[in-house]
């Protein structure tokens, strides 16, 4: 898709640890994101899936440096985002749509003030008229009635609120948007509309997405490639069709087998792989492979070392010691 080789977003060994206090003077690191690397090409959508609490939101926020990364590098368009000045420029190119359409809009601000906030912060207009026109244009993009510009956010439904949030993220004309479960708080019929809108906006404005979801169905529709996370680590990354057709990691296999299939015959053949046990707490992550406490293929070797995240076929990355044996 991209004509040049440098990816738009290049994340290298990203780490984000939260220090949780365990006593009056002691803290313990919670490794919400631990050594995650991926790239996103211009115009592409990378889907990021995983169970609740696996660190998807943290990846999205750390990529945008809303949290200061504990380790790792963030490269954007061939340059590392490092100094305060890089960051200021980065903020006008990379934006975010938030998970919760309720808490992400200030109840004391009007729709037009919310949408124009990034413009106000960066001083991106000269006259009030220019600001107003831009707001109306954005509202039209996301299918909001322009008459509602002076209303307060609490007067809108969840779907409408999420559209307001999307309009806000578009206002600085960004290239890259992190969409953090933008539809999971909406009901199914509205989810479809909003996802279609993301698709249309991408075509129209040439956007690049990091699209987070815990629902594989949602990401499959919109993603070119999909990354699977488990307990702060990335366990598999491949083209969307590849991950659906040939998942290699035991965790991805179980996620995909849990997706309902239209045809009952294939459904029966495609036996569901049930996972045993619960996700361990990220505060006490297991040694070695994070998935070993629930993996049906785990061996002693899995407890000893963390499997490397390596490319097993072109563009298909997996982190599992036994990839070859399991999939032979």
């Amino acid at each position: 898709m991209a004509d040049n080789q440098t990816p738009l977003v290049d994340i290298r060994h990203l780490k984000e640890y939260f220090y949780i206090s365990t006593g009056p003077f002691t803290t313990k690191p919670l490794k919400a994101v631990d050594d995650v690397s991926f790239t996103i090409r211009r115009g592409e959508t990378l889907g990021l899936v995983g169970e609740s609490g696996c660190g998807k939101t943290t990846v999205g926020r750390t990529v945008l440096q809303l949290y200061k990364p504990t380790g790792g590098e963030i490269w954007y368009d061939g340059k590392q985002v490092k100094t305060a000045r890089d960051l200021k420029e980065f903020r006008t190119k990379a934006t975010m749509v938030f998970q919760d359409p309720y808490s992400s809009l200030n109840p004391r601000m009007t729709v037009s003030d919310i949408i124009a906030e990034p413009l106000d912060v960066h001083g991106l207009y000269k006259t009030k008229e220019e600001r107003r026109e831009r707001v109306l244009e954005l509202m039209q993009y996301v299918g909001l009635n322009s008459e509602h510009a002076s209303r307060y956010a609490h007067e809108f439904s969840g779907g409408q609120r999420q559209r307001i949030g999307i309009a806000r993220s578009l206002s600085v004309n960004p290239e890259f948007i992190v969409c953090d479960e933008p539809v999971s708080a909406l009901d199914v019929s509205i989810q479809a509309q909003v996802i279609n809108m993301f698709d249309e906006l991408q075509d129209k404005l040439g956007l690049t997405y990091l699209f987070i979801a815990h629902d594989l169905l949602v990401v499959r529709h919109i993603s070119d490639r999909i990354a699977v996370m488990y307990l702060g680590k990335m366990v598999e990354l491949a083209d969307a069709d590849e991950i659906y057709g040939h998942p290699l990691h035991p965790y991805s296999k179980s996620l995909i087998s849990a997706v309902p299939v239209p045809d009952p015959r294939t459904a029966r053949a495609n036996q569901r792989i049930a996972l045993k046990g619960d996700i361990p707490s990220p505060l006490n992550a297991p040694s070695g492979c994070p998935f070993r406490t629930r993996c049906p293929y785990a061996t002693d070797a899995c407890a000893e070392s963390m499997p490397e995240f390596k490319e097993v076929s072109s563009g298909h990355f997996v982190a599992c010691h036994r990839t070859a044996e399991i999939n032979s």
Partner: peptide
């Protein structure tokens, strides 16, 4: 609240966040 985070994501400074949010 996520709207404070959203303001930070646009690059707003503390003064702006205190005043507006």
């Amino acid at each position: 609240q996520e709207y404070v985070l959203a303001a930070q994501a646009t690059g707003a400074r503390s003064g702006w966040i205190i005043r507006k949010h």
